[in-house]
């Protein structure tokens, strides 16, 4: 039951964060697009791992996701710090 109470918080946080990134990079849409691609790849790798029941090593670890996003968000430390709040094992 506690989990159900916390889900909207996480969802709202994610909405606000995506909105913040969109606004920050509205003149550099390629950065936002790259960010979406990183997330998409991460999700795909997580799904592969889940479906293989642990017999698949993800090509993109949490550390690599963080490193890629750090490169993308250089000089935007607030965005990177906030991203760290989402990432498991960051």
């Amino acid at each position: 039951p506690q989990l159900h109470n916390t889900q909207p918080v996480e969802f709202n946080h994610a909405i606000n964060y995506v909105n913040k990134i969109k606004n920050r990079f509205q003149n550099q849409p390629e950065i936002y697009k790259s960010f979406l691609e990183i997330l998409h790849t991460y999700q795909k790798e997580q799904r592969n791992m889940k479906e293989s029941q642990g017999n698949y090593t993800p090509k993109l670890t949490e550390q690599e996701v963080y490193a890629e996003v750090a490169r993308l968000f250089k000089n935007q430390e607030d965005l990177l710090a906030e991203f760290g709040q989402f990432l498991p094992d960051a």
Partner: peptide
Amino acid sequence: SFDFTPVDSAAVFVLSSMARQRRASQ
């Protein structure tokens, strides 16, 4: 603004599931 495209929604979905996973692992 909150003018979200389906791609944006997908990003929100991934981020919120990451956050849930993070919470679950703590």
